[in-house]
Amino acid sequence: MTATYSDAQLDALREVANIGSSTAATALSSMTGISVTVSTPHARAMALADAIEYAGPGETVVTTILIPVVGDLDAIVLMVLQPETEAAACRLLGVEQDSEVGVSALLELGNILGASYLGALVTLTALRLEPTPPEMVRDMLAATLASALLIDVREEIVFVLESTLSIASHQCSPMFLFVPTRGSVDDILKRLHLTA
């Protein structure tokens, strides 16, 4: 299924992510008071089942921030934090993992990054897209992702963005999944002047 999208199309999506990354870096720097850089070196389009497998062992309990998106098209943005990534994120944000503050900091992190990616997509496509309040789930990776991707979506292509946050020499790499509803992938590509 990956072959459905050309390198040029995936490059364009990675560019969207990179523009979003710089917005996110600015927001995170002002939130933490420390200089934060965000990069998104990889953008991939995958079949749903492949994306779940790619994300890691299905039984591992991971933390997922889910942001439903409404507007001209419905979509879901997911941020997946493997256990070690979650610990790194909490260290970067200066909060204690599993504490109330830790949870709200992770929600905020997902919100900032997710909203930044969406903002870039909105700017480049002129689509109206709005994030709704995020929700956090800690459960088996496959159970979380499959269930999120199956909610009213039924699009079997998922965009996977791997981003890296850096503060000084510390890094953490959450994975983002952007799951548009059926048909809207082509709409997005058309608006990026990359008709499928």
Partner: peptide, 11 residues
């Protein structure tokens, strides 16, 4: 043989 399916959510 062990038949396995892992990570069932809504499935």
């Amino acid at each position: 043989d062990v038949l396995t399916t892992i990570g069932l959510g809504s499935c």
